[in-house]
Structures are given as C-alpha cells and as structure tokens.
Amino acid sequence: MNSAPKILLVDDNPADANLTCEVLATSENPAQVSTVQDGEQALMFLHRMGQFAEAIRPDLIILDLNLPRKDGRAVLAEVKADPELNELPVVIFTTSHSARDIARCYELGANSYVSKPGNLGQFFSAVRSIENFWFGFASIPN
C-alpha cells in the first residue's frame, strides 16, 4: 500500500490511545490515525456528522469495548448492520479477556479480537502485529 493507511481508533483511555498512536507513528509507513474517545463520536465520525463532516473513511477500525456514552459492542453492532459500513474491518482491542465478550463480539461480526496486554512491551508488539497483518498482508476494500 503506497498511501498512508487510515485508522479510526476508538479508545477512552488516554494512556492506551497515546501508546497505540506512538507505536503506529514509528512504523515504516505510518498510518493516519484519527482518535475518538466514545462510541457516539465513533459513529458520528463514520457517518461524517456534526464536527466530523470532513472525516475520512478509515481502512480499519480499532475499537475498545468499554466506552462512555455508547459502548464498543453497540458501535460494532451498528457498523456491521449498516450496508455502507459493514465491509470495514473492525479489530476489537480491549483489556477484557472474558469468553463472554469474545463470543458476543464475534456474534456481532467483529473481524478480529485482540486482548490488550498489561505489559508495555507486549502492548507494543500487539499493536505492531495488528498493523503488520492488516496493512502488510491483508487486502482491505478501497
């Protein structure tokens, strides 16, 4: 991929969001990352509403689950039920390791589920793996 990949990062934890952005910024082909902090903003971004009227369509959504206002499960359900958006790959990136969350997310159509490691080095490599696979090897709709 020649042009910069575009990521919508939905995470209300500033430390996690900053770390994720830092990892992505040090890549060979740094992604253009847009960050929002809650589920309502994520959907407004994707529908280009309000302050997000000029928002670009992302190539990949990295979505946390426990979010204020509208949680990640609701965002995932809306994206996957919307014919305009459902082909967008959604990677769930969350501290939850619960079998229930994993099951629910796949039922709702999540493309992938990655648990956020607590350890800094592992967190770094999890983000790098997501980036490497989705932008280095997978094909994503234009």
């Binding site: 079998a99 994993i102 099951a103 629910r104 793996s129 997501i130 696979f133």
Partner: peptide, 21 residues
C-alpha cells in the same frame, strides 16, 4: 502468526459460546 497467536479465538464449543454470548 496473527490468527493463531495474536487473535483471541472464540470458545471451541459452540454450545458454550452461545451460552456465553
């Protein structure tokens, strides 16, 4: 590597999975 190691798979047993969901 991504799908076998990084990605969290759902529970193997479909009945357990449906119950968990």
């Amino acid at each position: 590597l991504y799908w076998m190691v990084i990605n969290q798979r759902p529970l193997a047993n479909p009945a357990q999975m449906a119950a968990a969901a």
